[in-house]
């Protein structure tokens, strides 16, 4: 296996996994909270929030990356604040690639989770309340476990989307070997090099294997937790 990929290519794979895992883990609680809000609450500005969450799905990724640059770049309001207060710079750094992947994955994660929360029978929550459960406990014991297949599905979709993220990443975090050059960026770079076909082929095969593995693992997880009727796909 070690002979199959060069050390440099292995580090690309490792970086991609690190970026995608970080993106999904960081986004998961936020995505679930947004999904719950959109599924269960009626409030002013709900439509606006819905549109905002879904924007990365419909915008050209380059535009999303440019907007991230405006906000999180060194001179952007959030970026400057992070820099002066915590010395954190996202641009040109793997955490920036993770942020770009997270923003692009968010709509897919919210959609999957929202559907599963909407499918939870509210009358079961009512039943829990009459049995003495406060709203928070009813949520933790009824809504959360019953929507678990949606959480797994959302996490998988987000992970697969993060692995494939290209446009927003290269615009916002740039294409720096060892920091932000994830699989798609490395493949793109390889295409520019004379004699890069072998590298492109190998990294593409790795991409396919990782994406299919993510699908299979999440499908198995969902089947185990949700019985035979539950599916991710």
């Amino acid at each position: 296996m070690n002979a199959w990929l060069t050390p440099g290519e292995w580090s690309v794979v490792a970086l991609s996994l690190r970026v995608s895992v970080a993106a999904v883990v960081l986004t998961l609680p936020l995505a679930y909270a947004l999904a719950w809000l959109l599924a269960r609450r009626r409030f002013p500005g709900r439509l606006l929030l819905d549109a905002l969450v879904h924007m990365p799905l419909v915008l050209p990724p380059v535009v999303t990356g440019w907007m991230l640059l405006l906000l999180f770049g060194r001179n952007g309001p959030i970026g400057a604040w992070l820099d002066t207060n915590f010395g954190v710079t996202l641009v040109f750094h793997w955490t920036g690639a993770a942020l770009a992947a997270a923003v692009m994955a968010l709509p897919l994660m919210v959609r999957a989770m929202r559907l599963s929360i909407e499918a939870v029978d509210r009358r079961l929550v009512d039943a829990a309340r009459t049995l003495g459960a406060r709203p928070g406990r009813a949520f933790l014991t009824i809504t959360l476990p019953l929507s678990a297949p949606g959480i797994a599905a959302g996490a998988m979709l987000g992970f697969a989307r993060s692995l494939g993220e290209f446009g927003a990443t290269i615009t916002f975090a740039s294409n720096i070997a060892g920091q932000t050059r994830t699989l798609p960026l490395a493949i793109y770079t390889g295409l520019q090099l004379p004699g890069g076909e072998a590298l492109v082929t190998r990294l593409s095969i790795v991409s396919v294997i990782l994406s299919v593995a993510a699908l299979v693992v999440s499908e198995l997880l969902v089947r185990r937790s949700g019985g035979s009727r539950a599916h991710v796909l």
């Binding site: 009358r123 009512d126 829990a128 009459t130 049995l131 003495g132 406060r134 009824i142 019953l146």
Partner: peptide, 28 residues
């Protein structure tokens, strides 16, 4: 709120918690 009224409400449609065994439903 419902949890402070202490009604033993047996719904027409039962509403057992589908993800919990009978023992856990009873214990809830």
């Amino acid at each position: 709120p419902p949890e402070r009224r202490r009604a033993g409400y047996v719904f027409q449609d039962g509403r057992l918690f589908s993800h919990l065994r009978v023992s856990a439903n009873l214990a809830y």
